[in-house]
Design a protein around this nucleic acid. Structure first.
Length: 457
DNA sequence: TTAGGGTTAG
């Protein structure tokens, strides 16, 4: 139904149709509108582009830009900010930069949101130095940073391992009159908890209470997770009860935090009850909840039930993510079904997931524990990306197989790559070399370990 | 239009 209305009404109509994800219908209405003499404007197309970014993909959204120009409407800073934000959501750094450049070439001046988004994209891509340069550019461009600018900065620093710098920035900003928002406190508490600085996190939590803000569901989930991480289980469960009393368990977050922690400690029955409670309370299962359930079934050895859930995910129109696949690969490994695990890993590669590091590590660990260390080495050589877990597991199991020279070589290549390795794995190599009469090699290796520590840490 | 909490491996 198209009406005789003004552009403003057309835009209201397009916004509501886009919200309902009926994008083709929205485009048809725009065309009908033109025929009836109701011309779309930049707001009409920006709404459509934002919806394509959110519900379809950046390429489709970008193609609307052409149609927009054909209709004689020039994009503005909001058009480009939407596209840059979409690229950032998918961690497409070069795409974000290209769009930023294109915007400049079109003579469109970026605003503080453009810089915020670009900064966030650099942080998400693990490039804090570049993000810092964008932060400086905001001031050089004579733009005023907004509270989100600082929140993105503090969050990015925390996520990239610079929690101390984040805390320093927070204090500096406070000295200059910055009033932290509840989001700022949550970001900092989460960063401090994850880096193991529980005392500092507690101080910030106390400050939050004194600031007049009320802790919200996110604050509670963050602190609860922190308790589980530091093995203060009963305290974590007390927070969960408090969340329920206060009505903060309106989504899947708290339930998944609790059930995840219960599964990790082998309390699968309680984890099951927790998820059942979630469903009874009318909370719909999302992909993370399904992942939790799949993990629960895998731990109980009920792989068939786990696979049944995959069908349910598909029926519900949800998409499996890298966690779903990793959990299943780990489940197959733990059940000793290496062939299926390897097949699933291949499938994961084929699907083009951004990372299969954890899944590969699961396979390496399980294979080498089962004595199939050469198979594990094959997987190792096929991996593009390796981390401290990959090396620790292999070095440890090579020692168990009394292959101390191979373990020593691998240990050194890990340290040369600037990666840490479990202390117990280091000790196993040194002890193994000594006990098999290679004391000189052990001494040399110890010296090299010390040198690597000085160079990298 | 941007920013915060949940799920994977020793």
């Amino acid at each position: 139904m198209v009406c005789r209305f003004s552009t403003r009404l057309l835009n209201i109509c397009i916004a509501s149709i886009c919200k309902a994800q009926q994008l083709e219908k929205a485009e048809a209405i725009i065309i009908d509108g033109i025929r009836l003499g109701v011309l779309p404007d930049v707001v009409t197309y920006n709404t459509l582009i934002a919806a394509y970014c959110r519900f379809v993909g950046i390429d489709t959204a970008y193609s609307v830009l052409h149609r927009m120009r054909e209709a004689g409407i020039n994009p503005d800073v909001i058009t480009y900010n939407s596209l840059i934000a979409a690229a950032t959501r998918h961690c497409l750094l070069s795409r974000s930069l290209d769009l930023f450049e294109e915007m400049l070439q079109m003579g469109i001046l970026p605003n503080v949101w453009s810089y915020n988004t670009l900064m966030h994209c650099f942080f998400k891509s693990g490039k804090p130095d570049e993000a810092n340069m964008v932060f400086r550019d905001i001031f050089l461009s004579n733009l005023s940073p907004c509270p989100s600018t600082f929140n993105i900065m503090i969050n990015g620093l925390c996520k990239n391992g610079y929690t101390n710098n984040a805390l320093m920035l927070f204090r500096n900003l406070q000295r200059h009159g910055f009033v932290p928002q509840i989001v700022t406190y949550n970001i900092l508490i989460n960063g401090l908890c994850k880096s193991g600085r529980l005392g500092a996190a507690r101080r910030i939590l106390k400050e939050l209470g004194e600031s007049g803000h009320v802790p919200n569901a996110i604050t509670y989930t963050t602190v609860m997770k922190c308790c589980f991480r530091s093995r203060q289980f009963e305290q974590g469960l007390e927070i969960f009860s408090e969340m329920k009393r206060k009505g903060y368990t309106f989504d899947a977050f708290a339930y998944c935090t609790v059930s995840g922690a219960l599964v990790k400690t082998g309390r699968t029955e309680e984890a099951n009850k927790c998820m059942e409670q979630m469903v009874t309370n009318g909370i719909e299962l999302d992909i993370v909840s399904y992942n939790n359930l799949i993990n629960l079934y895998c731990r109980e050895g009920k792989l068939e039930n786990a696979y049944k859930l995959l069908d349910e995910i598909e029926k519900r129109g949800l998409e499996c993510d890298k966690y779903t696949h990793t959990i299943l690969i780990d489940g197959l490994c733990k059940a000793g079904n290496f062939e299926s695990a390897q097949q699933h890993l291949k499938y994961m590669n084929m699907m083009g997931f951004d990372s299969n590091l954890v899944a590969s590590n699961c396979l390496i660990d399980a294979l080498s524990k089962a004595g199939q260390i050469d198979c594990a080495m094959k997987v190792f050589h096929s991996m593009e990306l390796k981390d401290s877990f990959t090396y620790s597991s292999l070095v440890h199991n090579l020692c168990k197989a009394r292959r101390f020279h191979s373990a020593s070589k691998l240990l050194l290549s890990c340290l040369r790559g600037g990666m840490k390795i479990l202390k117990s794995a280091q000790r196993a190599v040194l002890a193994g070399l000594r006990s098999s009469g290679f004391t000189r090699q052990a001494r040399k290796l110890q010296l090299k370990i010390r040198l690597a520590k000085i160079l990298h840490f």
